[in-house]
Each structure stands twice: as C-alpha cells, then as structure tokens.
Design a protein around this nucleic acid. Structure first.
Lengths: 212, 212
DNA sequence: TAGATTGTTAATCGATTAACAATC
DNA sequence: TAGATTGTTAATCGATTAACAATC
C-alpha cells in the first residue's frame, strides 16, 4: 500500500476500473496506454504515471492485460474488503441510494436502514426492513458496522454523528450539507453534494452562452 | 463574465454560496477572508484569489458583506437564469432527484418527466405527471427545454442523446455511466458518478487502515 | 533482431500559498 | 490617523506532460 498518493490520482482509479470492466466485457484482453487514453479522453502519460504509483502492471512492448489491470485496480481500491454499512434516512434519496447502487461490488454491504419518520419504519427496501432510529446503537454494536450512509436532513446530522461516532463508526458517505469533518478529525468523509454539481452545471451553461 | 477561470475555482463557488447562505441565515452580515477560511476549512489566500477572478467584492480594512457576496456569487453562478429542464427516467434515482432537489434555487426548472416503463407512466412526481418517452420531442420543442437530467440505464442513453441533441438540448446532468461527451463535442455534461464516489471512499478507508 | 510500449526521469505548466502595497 | 484587511503580485509547490532509456 503506497503512501501519499494524491487525491487526484485516487479519484481517477474508479474511472479506470469502470472502463477496464467494460473493455473486459467487450472481450478486449490487452490494451496500450495510448489506446486506453484515447478511449477515456485522457493521456498515455497520465495513465502510466497513475498506475506506476502502485506498481508496474504492464509489459514493455506489449501493453497491459485488461483483466489483470482491472483486477489490480480493484485490489488497490480495496473492493474485496467488504465494509458493513448502514443507511440513515429512508426518504426519497435514501430509497434511491439503497436500490440503485450495487454496494457489494463497490466494497460495501448494506445491512440495515434506519429512519426517524414512523410512517416509513417497517417498510421494506431491497429486502431490508427499515428500523427506527433508536435501534441503531444496538444494531451497529452487534453487527460490526463501520460505515454509515447519511441521507437525512442537515439539521439532524450533528446529533446523529455524535451517536455513530460513539458506537465506533468512523466512515461516512455524506449526502447532507452538514460538515462532518469539522466535528471529528479522525473520520473519513466522502461528500456527495448534488446541488453543488447542479450549480456548477448552471455556471458552465451560462459561461458558454456569453462567450464570444 | 471573465473567461478561462479554472474548473477548480468554479467548483468551489457553490461551496462558497452554501456557506454564505448559512452565515446570512445566522445573521452574520460581514466576514473577513480569514474568518471565512476558518469556517470553510480553506485559506484566506485562496478565497481572495478565487473571488478576484470575478471582481473586488470586499472592502479593504473591513472584509466582505455576507449578503452582498452571497448575491454576487449567485449571479456569477447564473442562478437567476432559469433553464427549462426535463428528467429522463422515473425509477428510484429519478424520483429521488425530482423530489430531493430544489431545482428552482439552483438555476433550473424541472418541467417534465419522461419514462420508458409503462407502469410508471401516468404517476405523479412533485406535481408533474410522468409521460412516455415518445412525447419528449414534441414537448421539448413546444416548451423551450435546453437541459436534460439523465437518470436512466446506460444502455439506452446513446439513442436518447441522439434524440435530445436533434431537438437542440445541449446541457446534460448525467447520472449514467454513458460517456456523453465522446458523442458530441458542443455539449455541456456534468457527470454524477455515485459509484465512483463510493469506490473512492473504499480506497480511503483501506488506506487509513493499513497506514502505520 | 526490430518494433513497440512500458516505467521513470526531466521539463513544463498551472494552482496554491505567501507577501505586501493599496486603501478603507 | 492607525489598524485592519483587501486586491494583487511574486514565490512556491505539485500535478501534468514530454522525453527517452529499458526491455519485452
């Protein structure tokens, strides 16, 4: 496990993994950095630099084996180490997250869903029964949970994090606008700010429109 | 409208906007770059550099007016120019997008939803009736739509884009893994790859675990 | 062997950070 | 005026790109 790989490189790894998965599905079994760059709208230099942060996966004069490279990147990402995960919030967003994503192929196993709203408690999602918030502590302790997905209103997150942190959950996939990192500094937080993405799109549309 | 502002700066603008909105709601009416940096876990230098890509919004010796700065960033983002938008796909993800986001505050107006699956056609979402895919062309032409949100399976996206492009829709908020930009080069595509985000989280968890 | 393509070093480019003069 | 803080220039740092020797 090499240390100090830049976040830019890390964020490109899933993209490599996706494209290699597709190439493998298409029956491509070897590829050069130049060709991969062309497929991915990247550069051969960047691909070789990125990969060589982790090791030499290619063969000079030949290129890279697609299945081997895909598997290696999967290992680098750690997709084979499954993290037991709970989802907090079974509203529209929570339900979409639960049903839309293949957690198990991405390094996680969604094992329980919690919700404050009584009307949603008891409903089923992907074969998982939605439980009331009060049961989180008991459940997480008994089931070795280390990761939480936060799909709940911002206002309630602060107290929820206190609870989850106390149980020992340190990894968060955060869809709320609450700034988790400011509260605790030994947690890992991956934020998904959908509205930021939409505002960025807005900027880019206007930028194009008024460029002359 | 300044030209050539780097994408890094642009992607920080929505975050500034969010924090300023919150500060304003809290009744804070002025702030220095140093204090804002502390709140946002950023640096004063970066904030001043970023803002000065667009103009001098502060006052020397005083700082920045929170409401003024918030409004200026809103204008820079173009949130006041509303783009008429359609959502393609009323599955779990599409429904979450439709119900979860305040499009109108983010520069967009969601006016119609289209879906291939007959079982979902006719259902209501946020007061919008889900229509069959076949009606997109007629609807978009009649209603001056310029943006599409893609929450549909990857396999169907290619043909859909051909259709939307032909109608004149050039802006895409893309939740699928289909690579729209490769097909047409005068489009604006903002991708949201949730699974990439989750894989990145996986990497970061493992990186922390094995660091010693 | 010759051709191809990697792994890796060096050069370039751009972004971030620091410094400070301008000025409110 | 003096203190504070911006706007902006300069310095540093890191990421990307280019080049090429190693080698399959």
């Amino acid at each position: 496990m090499p240390k100090g790989v830049s976040i830019q490189v890390i964020r490109r790894l899933p993209r490599y993994y996706r494209f290699l998965t597709e190439l493998e599905a298409q029956g491509v079994d070897k590829i050069s950095s130049t060709k991969l760059a062309s497929v991915m709208s990247s550069t051969a230099s960047q691909i070789r630099q990125d990969l060589n942060c982790f090791g030499g996966f290619g063969q000079q004069g030949y290129g890279y084996s697609v299945p081997v490279l895909r598997e290696e990147i999967g290992k680098i990402l750690g997709l084979d180490h499954i993290h037991r995960t709970v989802l907090i919030g079974a509203g529209n967003l929570g339900r979409a997250i639960a049903t839309h994503l293949n957690f198990e192929q991405l390094g996680f196993k969604l094992t329980a869903i919690f919700e404050k709203d009584e009307k949603l408690v008891g409903t089923m999602l992907r074969g998982i029964k939605v439980m009331p918030d009060e049961e989180i502590e008991r459940y997480a302790r008994e089931n070795d949970v280390d990761t939480a997905v936060l799909a709940m209103p911002k206002d309630a997150v602060e107290k929820m994090i206190d609870k989850l942190y106390a149980i020992g959950i340190r990894n968060y996939w955060n869809f709320s606008h609450y700034d988790i990192a400011k509260q605790y500094d030994d947690v890992i937080v991956e934020n998904v700010h959908l509205s930021d993405s939409l505002m960025t799109l807005c900027y880019r549309i206007n930028e194009k429109k008024y460029q002359t």
